[in-house]
Lab assay of single mutants.
Amino acid sequence: VKVFRALYTFEPRTPDELYFEEGDIIYITDMSDTNWWKGTSKGRTGLIPSNYVAEQ
């Protein structure tokens, strides 16, 4: 598990995607895809765009 911080707010387009706000901490559990990672924030899990976060 790696810890990342959201650089921007992300509004999901599908139920599989995770909503998060700029500054949120996201725990990444799967980075197997280059563009979409699986992450958890505020008790919810979903896909996030990798270019919206920076490693802490």
Rank of each mutant, 00 (worst) to 15 (best):
G43I: 02
E17V: 04
E11R: 13
F4M: 11
A54P: 02
P12R: 05
E21A: 09
W36G: 01
S50T: 07
T45L: 07
V53A: 03
I26L: 13
I48K: 01
N51R: 12
K38H: 12
D33S: 08
N35E: 13
R5K: 15
Y52A: 14
Y19G: 15
D33K: 06
N51Q: 11
N51K: 11
T45N: 09
N35K: 14
A6D: 00
T29L: 14
P49N: 07
T29Q: 09
Q56S: 13
Y19T: 06
D16N: 12
E21G: 05
V3Y: 10
E17F: 11
G23K: 02
R5S: 05
L18Y: 01
S50M: 07
P12V: 05
K42R: 14
E22S: 10
D16M: 11
R44T: 06
E55A: 13
Q56T: 14
T34I: 13
S32E: 09
T45W: 15
G46H: 02
K42G: 14
V1Q: 11
L18S: 00
G39E: 01
E22C: 10
L47D: 02
T9V: 04
P49K: 06
G46Y: 03
Y19I: 03
R13S: 13
P15I: 11
P15H: 10
T14K: 12
I48D: 01
T34Q: 14
V53E: 02
Y27A: 06
K2T: 09
G23C: 07
K38Y: 15
E11H: 15
K42M: 10
T9I: 04
Q56I: 15
R44Y: 06
F10E: 00
F20M: 09
E21Y: 06
K2L: 12
K42H: 12
V1K: 11
V3M: 12
P15W: 07
K42P: 01
D33Y: 04
W37Q: 00
V53M: 11
D33R: 06
N51L: 10
D33A: 07
P12Q: 04
W37G: 01
D30P: 03
T40R: 11
I48T: 02
Y52S: 10
R44D: 04
S50Y: 06
P12G: 07
Q56H: 14
N35D: 13
T40S: 13
E11Q: 14
A6G: 05
E21Q: 12
R5D: 01
T34E: 14
I48C: 05
N35R: 13
R44C: 07
P15V: 11
D24E: 07
Y52K: 05
I25F: 09
L47G: 02
D30A: 05
L7G: 01
I25H: 05
T9A: 08
T14G: 13
I26M: 05
G43R: 03
T34M: 14
I26D: 00
I28Q: 00
G23I: 03
F4C: 09
I28V: 14
M31A: 07
Y8I: 08
D30M: 06
S32A: 09
K38P: 04
P15A: 13
R44A: 08
L47I: 09
Q56L: 15
V1P: 12
L47K: 10
T9G: 08
S41W: 05
P49E: 03
E55L: 13
E22N: 05
Y52C: 12
G39F: 02
T45C: 10
K38L: 15
N51D: 12
Y27M: 11
Y52G: 07
S41R: 15
L47R: 09
A54M: 14
T45Q: 10
F4Q: 00
N35M: 14
L18R: 00
L47Y: 12
S41T: 14
T14N: 14
T14H: 14
F4N: 00
P15L: 11
I28G: 00
I25K: 04
D33N: 11
S32R: 10
L7A: 03
W37P: 00
T14C: 14
T40V: 12
E22A: 15
T45A: 11
R5M: 12
S50P: 11
L47W: 14
Y8Q: 10
V3W: 12
I25M: 09
D16F: 13
N35A: 13
P49Y: 05
L7Q: 04
I28R: 00
G39A: 09
N51G: 12
R13K: 12
V3N: 04
I48A: 03
N51W: 15
I28K: 00
E55H: 09
T9K: 11
P49S: 04
I28N: 00
D30V: 04
F20G: 01
D33I: 05
D16W: 13
M31F: 09
Y27V: 11
D33E: 07
G23Y: 04
I28A: 02
V3Q: 09
L18V: 05
Y8C: 15
R44I: 09
W36E: 01
I28F: 01
G39R: 01
E11D: 09
L7W: 03
E17A: 07
I26Y: 01
T40A: 08
A54I: 15
L47F: 12
I28W: 00
T40E: 12
S32Y: 08
D16G: 12
D30F: 05
T40G: 06
F10W: 15
T45V: 12
Y8E: 06
E11K: 13
E55Y: 11
E11Y: 15
S50V: 10
E21T: 08
Y27S: 06
E11G: 05
W37M: 03
K38E: 08
I48F: 15
K42A: 12
I25G: 01
K2H: 11
S32C: 09
K42D: 10
Y27R: 06
F20I: 11
E22F: 08
E21L: 09
Y27Q: 07
S50Q: 06
I48L: 14
F20H: 00
A6L: 04
K2C: 14
E22Y: 08
M31H: 06
K2P: 07
F20E: 00
W36P: 00
T9C: 08
S32L: 10
W36T: 05
S32Q: 10
G46A: 02
S41Q: 05
P49C: 10
